[in-house]
Design a protein around this nucleic acid. Structure first.
Lengths: 227, 227
DNA sequence: CGCTATATTGATGGCGATCAACAAATGTGG
DNA sequence: CCACATTTGTTGATCGCCATCAATATAGCG
C-alpha cells in the first residue's frame, strides 16, 4: 500500500461542501457508503490471505487479481477484477485470498464496519450485498467446470470471450495481465496459453497485435466455447 | 418426489404453551421457517439447471450432488450435500445447477418466498443467509485450487480428508457416492480415482473395506494434502 | 444363484507440463 | 537516440500424468 495510515482526504479532491458524492464512489448506490481512493503499483499486494478483512474494495482503474497459493508455490487465480468490480468481501474476520495489482491500479476503499452497520439498518443494502456474493459464487461455479472439464483451447477461448464481454463486447480485447497470470487463472502453464493463442490465430479465430491486444472473431470464438 | 407429511409442531414439546418446531426442521434457527419433508430415490433429480428456484433445501439424511454439465456430457460436480447441509439458494429467479440424490435421500423444503420475506423483516436472518452463501463461496474457492493445481493423488486425499471431517473426523469414512461421482467432483476419471485409492492403500495411508468404507490414517493423509 | 452395477487393473496414447532456446518488447543509462 | 539489460512471450523437443480403451473382478440384488 502506498499509504499506510488511511490518509484519505488529503490525496483526494475535497468533498467538503458537496451534499452528494458521485455514484461512482458509492457502494451499492448507497449514499452513506462513500469510498476513499487509493493507488497501488503493478504487482503490489493489496491484502494478503489471513489478514484482517477491514476493507472492501472497488476498482476504479487498472486490474486486480485475487488468488490462493499452496506452500510449494502453485498458484490459482480466482478472479480478475476490472473497473467497477468489487472485491475483498468477507463475512468472517479474515481474508481467504490474496489481492494484488496486475497493473498500476486505483481502488476505492470502504470500511467494512460501516458497510455492515448500513446492512444492519437497511434490508435493501443487505440484499445487494447478498446479491454481490451470489454473483461471485456464480462465477466461481462457472470457473469450476472450466478447470475440471475443459481443454486448454476451450479455456483460453472462454477466457478471451469473457474478457471481451466485460470490456464491452466489441471483439477488441486489451489484456491487462501477462501470460503467467492467465495461465494461473486457467489452471495451465504460460507456454500452453501462448500455444493456444498461436493456434487460435493460425485458425483465424483471432488476431494478435502484440502480446496484449487481441481482435476476436466473436462468433467463431463462441463456437469453441459452447456449453 | 415422494411426499411425506411431517406434522411438525404437533409432535414437539411446547414451551410456554407455544408449539415449537425442533431446531432440525428450521432454517437458520428461525422459528417461522419450518420445512416440509420430501424424499427422493437414488439418482432422482431434485431440481434442474434453469428451473424456477422456488425452494431451498436442507438434507435430513442421504446425500445430494449439485452439478453443471456441458452439451457433450462432460460434468462437473460442484458439491456433495450431507445431512444438515443447505442447498438450492439463489438470489436470481432460476437455479444455476442441477441437484440429484446420490442415494435415497430425505430433505426439508423451504419456500424461498417465505425465506426472503423473513430476511426482509429480520436483519439477523438476512445476515445468516449471507453467511451461508459466503461459506459456499469459500468452498468453491478452495475447490478451484484443487481443480486447477493439484495432482490426482492430492485431489483424492483432499476429498477423503474433507469427507472425514464432515462425518465427524473419526478416520472412518463411509462414502455415499460411486467412483464416477467422486471423479466428476475432482475433475478426474473414475479409473484414476480407483487407481489413486489403490495407491494410497498400497502406501498404507488408508484401508478399503469394500468400495465404500475407508479407514484413513489421518495424519499421513494430511501430509499428502498439505497446503 | 445368476444377472447387472460398480470397481479394479492392465495396456496404450495424447494433451499439456517441463526443459530449453530464441525472439520481441520494455526499460535504462550514456 | 541508441547500446545493452531485463522482462515477457513464442516456439521447439521431450516427458509424464492422466485419459482412453479393454478385460476382469467384485458387489448388490432379484
Amino acid at each position: 500500500m502506498r499509504h499506510e495510515v488511511l490518509p484519505v482526504a488529503r490525496h483526494m479532491p475535497s468533498l467538503h461542501g458537496l451534499p452528494l458524492a458521485a455514484p461512482e464512489v458509492l457502494l451499492c448506490g448507497c449514499p452513506e457508503l462513500v469510498g476513499t481512493s487509493f493507488s497501488y503499483g503493478r504487482e503490489e499486494e493489496i491484502f494478503g490471505e489471513g489478514e484482517d478483512a477491514e476493507f472492501v474494495y472497488k476498482v476504479v482503474h487498472g486490474a486486480v487479481r485475487t488468488c490462493k497459493m499452496l506452500s510449494d508455490g502453485r498458484r490459482q487465480i480466482d478472479a480478475f477484477h476490472l473497473p467497477g468490480d468489487l472485491f475483498g468481501f468477507e463475512t468472517a474476520a479474515r481474508h481467504r485470498m490474496t489481492a494484488e495489482a496486475v497493473a498500476d491500479t486505483t481502488v476505492l476503499l470502504f470500511r467494512r464496519r460501516q458497510i455492515e452497520d448500513t446492512a444492519n439498518r437497511d434490508v435493501a443494502t443487505a440484499r445487494k450485498l447478498w446479491d454481490v456474493t451470489m454473483r461471485t459464487l456464480g462465477h466461481a461455479q462457472e470457473h469450476m467446470i472450466l478447470l475440471g472439464r475443459r481443454t486448454a483451447l476451450e479455456r483460453v477461448a472462454a477466457f478471451l470471450t469473457h474478457m471481451d464481454e466485460r470490456l464491452g463486447g466489441s471483439g477488441q480485447v486489451d489484456l491487462a495481465m501477462p501470460r503467467r497470470d492467465i495461465a494461473d487463472y486457467l489452471g495451465l502453464t504460460l507456454e500452453t496459453v501462448s500455444r493456444a493463442l498461436s493456434q487460435l490465430q493460425q485458425d483465424g479465430v483471432l488476431r494478435l497485435d502484440g502480446a496484449r491486444k487481441i481482435m476476436l472473431d466473436r462468433s467463431r470464438m463462441a463456437a469453441i466455447v459452447e456449453d
